[in-house]
Amino acid sequence: MEISVKINGTPQKHEIEPRQLLVDFVRSTAGLTGTHIGCDTTSCGVCTVLLDGVPVKSCTVFAAQVDGHEVATVEGLKSNGELHAIQKAFTAHHGLQCGFCTPAMMLVGAAFIEENDNPSDDEVRWAISGNLCRCTGYVNIVKAIQAAAEERRAQ
């Protein structure tokens, strides 16, 4: 079947297998490997993309379901050659170690600070509780998201 989808702002058409998962579509068909796979049970969140601006676990969505919609991935965070505030904050606050969970964490963070640009520690922790990280112990991820929120507020 054919789907039309906007990926990181660019409209595209692709021929897909109806059973293809969105995560495989993004990685293999669209060639955007910044979105990762970490589990079989919708538990880890490393496959997170934004579907019409809302974080979804792309391992649990069929590619066919995004027909006519917009998908944003980590590769689309930068705009006009400028890093997104969340990307800068993850580096500045050492919010990543191996970096495997990072694209998803940043996307969740980026969507979250659009809704809440002055989050408490607990609010950030709740917002990212669908995303696992095995390296950092989360504290610097929380700090990074709060710093990006502050940047957002200042705008």
Binding site: T35, I37, Q87, F90, T91, L96, G99, P103
Partner: peptide
């Protein structure tokens, strides 16, 4: 000092095993 490896990882340009085709 900020990490040198971050630049690629925050832009989804890491090269993990499954990214190799």
């Amino acid at each position: 000092v900020p990490r040198q490896e971050d630049a690629r990882l925050i832009e989804g340009q890491g090269n993990f095993l499954d990214d190799i085709s």
